[in-house]
Nucleic acid binder design. Structure first.
Lengths: 148, 148, 148, 148
DNA sequence: TTTT
DNA sequence: TTTT
């Protein structure tokens, strides 16, 4: 309906472990920072400069559990998702904004023994459906009544 | 699992109407050609050259029905999908190959009265699920037993 | 080198006019807010809910001038770019973060007379090069000495 | 100008070595097959099925030379490009079509000693520019007069 | 806080 | 013809 598109595609490395948060209703959310790098040659100094960009990845439910189980700090992953900027209040009552990538799909790019045969949510349509849904409900709601 | 990605993103115009094909089991598939243009300045002649590229779009089930209902020749659409090369035999028995875009998502970019409030499959998660499934089964199978 | 990817693809509508800022060295930057919508059916209320997400688009140099010339509030555009989170200080000296989309490519999706034949930066490779460069230098530097 | 988009994004493994072809004017083109996999559970048999899709990747000039130098059969790579269907004649004079991905950007995802610090065309804007140009000229023309 |  |  909306005629719009909101898509982010990242390949990067986890800067930390996946941090899980479980909701009362049974849903859960995982979060982890993802680093991407950009390298260019400065025109001023003629030196190579590397900038690291950090992205806040948010994964939900089944997908979050898979990420927690198979991903570790340093691992490389492909993440697809949507941009979402959350509003929150700091301790002084100021409005703050935080931009997150709500993950809708991912593929593990680091090969690890334990993750063999399990590294992607693409192998099971149900997991993809979870991911799809994940992006359709604001974080904070419980996703406890999955229809399958 | 596979650690691979197969994604196509197109914005283009329909070169023809959506052609539907219905399977016995109740599934269906819609096909239409999509044109994208590329313009560049030839280094030889210094003239602007426009090339049109034609893409074979394949949509399935609910998504196909929505496309047939709301899309017409000339309409602009955003299509997301996967590349798939089909093998077939021509009349002389020669092996032929045809590359298609198996649509997994789309957004209408032409505003038409009839399609108002309905132009995208993104408004209804179920339709997205259909699309998701669509890409998980080879064309030719019937998708008659949707689990929802 | 880095083996990473940082890509954003948006189709949305301008929430305001393009605001230009010119640097002393001759470079310039344009900024505008872009709205994307997401619609879903709430599981709690069974009602359709529409959320609007706002994105801060940043365009540079030639590309910025093209955007300023041909884009107006309400226009639809496809934007491709990279995510970049800037750190700044508010009046109280607090660290604040703002996430922007550094535009590397775009295509106008609204047809307007004035923009006919000019609506995209894709028609002129040089403009693409500018865009490409744009993403390689931090905002704040002047891009006045293009090497071609 | 055209208001269209033609983008392919793949992560896959090389099925063979990069095959180079040098033009008289000094330009060159590299080609290699790239495999992506899709896995799903068949609704008929309830078994997991894996399909491999093969993509014809075409890279040009500097980018082709980098690929030839650092990529080998089996390596994983991210490829971004445009779809292009070429028309050719088989021995019987029949019209045939072959769809290729004209590579505009890539990132190596396999870590190999030899490729350290060199694995992507993203580290040098000039190489990106070559890639950008690459897609602006039909294959078959010689790119012998690069302006940088 | 990642990686090369 | 790749990979897991």
């Amino acid at each position: 309906m909306s005629g719009t598109l909101n898509k982010v595609m990242l390949i990067g490395h986890l800067g930390d472990e996946v941090k899980m948060h479980y909701f009362e209703g049974g849903g859960c959310v995982g979060r982890f920072p993802l680093a991407t790098n950009e390298t260019y040659v400065s025109k001023q100094t003629n030196e190579r400069v590397t900038n690291t960009e950090w992205h806040n990845i948010v994964v939900r439910n089944k997908a979050a559990e898979i990420c927690e189980k198979y991903l570790s700090k340093g691992d490389r992953i492909y993440v697809e998702g949507r941009l979402k900027t959350r509003k929150w209040q700091d301790d002084s009552g100021n409005e703050r904004y935080s931009t997150e990538i709500q993950c809708t799909d991912f593929t593990f790019l680091t090969t690890k023994k334990e993750s063999e045969g399990q590294a992607s949510n693409k192998m099971d349509p149900k997991k993809s459906i979870d991911n799809q849904q994940m992006a359709n409900e604001p974080i904070g709601e419980e996703d406890d009544d999955l229809p399958f």
